[in-house]
């Protein structure tokens, strides 16, 4: 019994020391926790960006010509874009607002055919508040580097040997693998034709076959309004003369109309090879 009393007293002292030590280290610990939590939000945001944003805004947020504007650009963080749209809050608030509620109207001077959709589940989108916050954390993490690079986003380079809009153009042998890389990367096709249902889906969906199969017969349909004489010409037309024929159910002018200037003959051939592989 005596040793229990002695040990108990000793342990009470130990408890006091332990609690004091804990209390003293609590503030820095909480700071560390918050820092690591913010860092993990950036990680989750990166994954969300990859899944939901990359297809239109590009893998590094540099934007895709004719599809969606750059986010990883100095003008977003230095305040000039906010001034242009008349936003009086912070960049972070602006980014959060645009992700959550979308953009019903394009910014003045831009020609992006598609509107930014609503992403927050408060406005009918798929993401929870914390996911929107994570995305914002990820996008705001571009600030340093975007400002360091500085300046406006470079104007789109003029493509040497662009394929033009002639349907009868002769194309080299296409590479479907490279075509897929183009569609999912710099050209941004997958943003609307694979992930979102903005344009007709390329993959087979339900009883509707893939774009390759559809192209083989579409130019023979009664309601077809274009000039194509075969499947290849139909696909060329669909890419470079985007309003020649509008698939029923979709509005005109959604598809960027400048692919004829942006693609080389090889690019177009690869893209068509990829589309033809989707049966």
């Amino acid at each position: 019994m005596k040793w229990q009393i002695a040990a108990g007293m000793f342990l009470v002292l130990g408890l006091i020391v332990l609690t004091l030590g804990l209390a003293l280290s609590e503030m820095p610990r909480m700071e560390l926790f918050k820092a690591s939590n913010d860092a993990r939000a950036v990680e989750s945001g990166a994954l969300l960006f990859e899944n939901s944003c990359r297809a239109c805004h590009g893998p590094q947020g540099k934007g895709i010509e004719g599809v969606a504007p750059p986010i990883n650009a100095a003008d977003l963080y230095d305040g000039s874009r906010l001034a242009a749209v008349g936003w009086s809050g912070t960049t972070e608030d602006y980014v959060r607002n645009v992700i959550a509620a979308g953009r019903p109207v394009p910014s003045a001077g831009t020609t992006y055919p598609q509107r930014m959709p609503t992403w927050s589940d408060r406005f009918g989108g798929p993401l929870r508040d914390d996911q929107v916050d994570s995305l914002v954390a990820f996008i705001m993490n571009w600030e340093d580097r975007a400002l360091a690079e500085g300046g406006d986003a470079a104007p789109p380079p003029v493509v040497e040997g662009a394929v033009g809009t002639d349907l009868a153009v002769s194309l080299p042998e296409g590479d479907a693998v490279r075509g897929q890389q183009l569609a999912e990367g710099a050209l941004g096709c997958s943003g609307c034709h694979v992930l979102a249902d903005v344009g007709p889906a390329w993959n087979a969906v339900g009883d509707q076959p893939g774009v390759g199969t559809r192209a083989a017969t579409r130019f023979t349909q009664d309601d077809y309004t274009g000039q194509a004489a075969d499947a290849q010409q139909y696909l060329v037309e669909a890419v470079v003369q985007t309003n020649a024929f509008i698939v029923s159910g979709y509005p005109a002018n959604i598809m960027p109309q400048n692919y004829g200037d942006r693609l080389t003959g090889q690019d177009l051939a690869d893209l068509i090879a990829y589309m033809n592989s989707l049966r």
């Binding site: 560390l32 690591s36 860092a39 993990r40 950036v42 990680e43 990166a46 994954l47």
Partner: peptide, 8 residues
């Protein structure tokens, strides 16, 4: 996956 310096 993405890893952040401060994720700890």
């Amino acid at each position: 996956t993405y890893v952040h310096r401060q994720a700890a």
